[in-house]
Design a protein around this nucleic acid. Structure first.
Lengths: 216, 216
DNA sequence: TCCAAAATGTAATCGGCGATTACATGCAGG
DNA sequence: CCTGCATGTAATCGCCGATTACATTTTGGA
């Protein structure tokens, strides 16, 4: 519609600009894959292509293989995950590091409970383990640094029983990660027909952990 | 070779007796699948058949589909897992419930660290979630009951801070489950070239948890 | 003892998937 | 305008799970 866009710089520099024929097939494929995952279906390149109304070979113009598509999907999911956690933290008072830690864990688990298949794609190592994606690595490191920072502040204010912050951080991470994975792996059979039941249990578990590391 | 084996009872009762031609193809297929998993390879029915030197269709005489094979594999892995934990517990003094709890967690994580792909098959819900296997359900319930029992004894001896045993049990489960999954999902990048590093961290995390729930 | 039936294995085949190749199309800029 | 590259298609390959028709071996009872 716009007659001419004056492009201020070379267009061959960035490797992922926009496709020509389809509009933005890359984006559409990622969205299709996200929806497939959200529906609990297997994410296949062919099905994503089908949803994009495109031939089975077309996706391979944008992704060298299936894993590359999944990495892009993981990047998007991780971005949403991080955004939701940071939004929750932005409403927690900066002066209460353990309260922030609690809000962090709560937001983490809430998102993981409500987006289990997306959480699985983020967490299942296959797509980030080999340094596949700088964005993925960065977002993840950011979250870890955030939690370390909160613990450091708590320690500085003399709120913690132990001085081994690394150990506390790993334990806390394992706790929320384990709870999230237990949920998506089907280890919570029928408690939560009410759907809120599991989230209340998540809250209780986080509180138990914080009570365990905090000075009385 | 043996001329006649006097069979003392009807043979049509049990649905899984022994195969005829191959010796025990069912068993061989399960073992092949266990080895495939241990090698980090994808477990495919065809590859298991190849290793058993049998045609690609043969496995389907013993398993209605791939999932059924994986359930059998999960049963065997779960059996080993449980056996190792119970062996470790048999050496822990019965009078010290929290010490037993610690030994339990340690044995759990040791096995999960050393058999990550088998742990994954056990834990990944797909093979037990739909009540596929009574043995799997039973072994798992047994382990859960064991941990609940230890916590109940600890509470009875007045060793615990909180009386909410259910919450403690879920948190402890989530902690070890999360640590084990973080390991197999690739969330422990390069700490443990020495291999024992991660196990020492596992020990520290368990001790931190127990310190958090125990009266000082 | 022998034979019919059940149990087990094979060969051939189907559809779905990831991936590659040769070819077609359309947009961009010199 | 027209050449070249980015994008999409069609056809194909090999692997996988699964089914079917057929072959073979074991079993248990007549």
């Amino acid at each position: 519609m716009t007659p001419k866009t004056p492009k201020p710089r070379a267009r061959r520099q960035a490797p992922e600009v926009r496709p020509y024929h389809h509009g933005d097939l890359r984006r559409v494929l990622i969205d299709a894959a996200l929806h497939l995952a959200a529906e609990g279906a297997e994410v296949s390149v062919r099905e994503a292509a089908r949803r994009a109304a495109v031939s089975p070979g077309a996706p391979f113009r944008h992704f060298p293989n299936r894993d590359a598509l999944m990495v892009a999907v993981a990047e998007e999911a991780q971005r949403r995950f991080r955004a939701e956690i940071e939004a929750a933290l932005s409403q927690a008072p900066a002066t209460d590091p353990l309260g922030r830690f609690r809000a962090f864990g709560l937001a983490y688990l809430r998102w993981a409970m409500r987006n289990p298949t997306h959480f699985e794609i983020i967490s299942t190592g296959r797509y980030f383990a080999h340094g596949s994606s700088a964005a993925l690595t960065r977002d993840n490191a950011e979250l870890i640094a955030l939690s370390e920072q909160m613990l450091a502040e708590a320690a500085q204010q003399g709120l913690l029983l132990s001085a081994d912050l690394k150990r506390i951080q790993i334990a806390g991470r394992a706790l929320v990660y384990g709870f999230a994975r237990m949920n998506l792996d089907g280890h919570f059979p029928r408690w939560g027909v009410a759907e809120g039941e599991i989230e209340r249990m998540a809250e209780g578990v986080i509180d138990l952990f914080i009570a365990g590391i905090a000075k009385p």
